[in-house]
């Protein structure tokens, strides 16, 4: 489904990502771990075409997407939940969802499905999104990305700053999407948040992959992982 091979990303002339390679298959959750500034967000932005210059290949469903314009990437079926939610804060909940629907023709059907998943948003459709609570904002960010009806979902620290009940809801949603066959690329800093949902784990340090393993192996021997992320 998603194949990233020898990906290098530059901001101006500075190489941020260094020859990164990984794959994510249908219904699989790949987790990117690493410290702040390691290059996790840049990896997601590179896939979405939101960086100045990339080298290497990003293929999605056997189509090269690393050279297409950023606005065409979601049309391929890739949904994105950016770090810090990045909602259109002065737009209402409904308008944010409408933006998510721009690439879809059967909007009403999609929006109903998404609102079924997050009924609390249904009660707040006319509310300005910037006035929602942190957890509701995260729900909206996820719902907006799901309006694309993605087959690949990129999640950048979706549990950051949330209370435990909300983390549990986000976790449940991710598991449900995984069950539906959506491939998920998840960026997290909290190991305990990902071990129960991830299939594979990659650790990035200074823009390069320094460790990769299956979640099962990590569960059996977590010390190996903790050595890289300094827990």
């Amino acid at each position: 489904m998603l194949e990233v091979s020898n990906l290098s990303t530059y901001y101006s002339n500075i190489k941020i990502l260094k020859d990164i390679s990984f794959t994510v298959q249908r219904g699989e959750v790949l987790c990117l771990l690493g410290r702040n500034g390691a290059g996790k967000t840049t990896t997601l932005k590179s896939i979405m075409g939101l960086v100045d210059k990339v080298e290497g290949n990003i293929n999605f469903n056997n189509e090269r997407i690393s050279k297409i314009s950023a606005h065409l990437v979601p049309k391929k079926g890739i949904g994105y939940v950016p770090q810090g939610r990045r909602l259109f804060s002065e737009l209402t909940v409904e308008e944010n969802l409408e933006i998510g629907l721009l690439t879809r023709k059967n909007g009403e059907q999609t929006i109903n499905k998404v609102l079924e998943m997050f009924p609390r948003l249904n009660e707040r459709l006319k509310q300005v999104s910037g006035t929602l609570s942190g957890g509701e904002q995260q729900m909206l960010a996820l719902a907006r990305a799901l309006c694309i009806e993605p087959t690949l979902l990129l999640l950048d620290e979706p549990t950051e700053g949330l209370q435990p009940s909300m983390i549990s809801l986000i976790r449940k949603s991710v598991l449900e999407l995984k069950k539906q066959g959506v491939a998920i690329l998840l960026v997290e800093q909290r190991v305990e948040a990902i071990l129960s949902i991830a299939d594979k784990i990659i650790v990035i340090e200074n823009g390069a992959i320094v460790f990769s393993s299956t979640a099962q192996k990590i569960k059996n021997n977590p010390k190996k992982l903790y050595r890289f992320i300094g827990v």
Binding site: M48, G49, F88, L91, L102
Partner: peptide
């Protein structure tokens, strides 16, 4: 309005 508020995120939702 979406482009005005956050042009990068707007692109990630298909806005050219």
């Amino acid at each position: 309005r979406a482009t005005q508020l956050d042009s990068e995120t707007a692109q990630a939702f298909g806005i050219p």
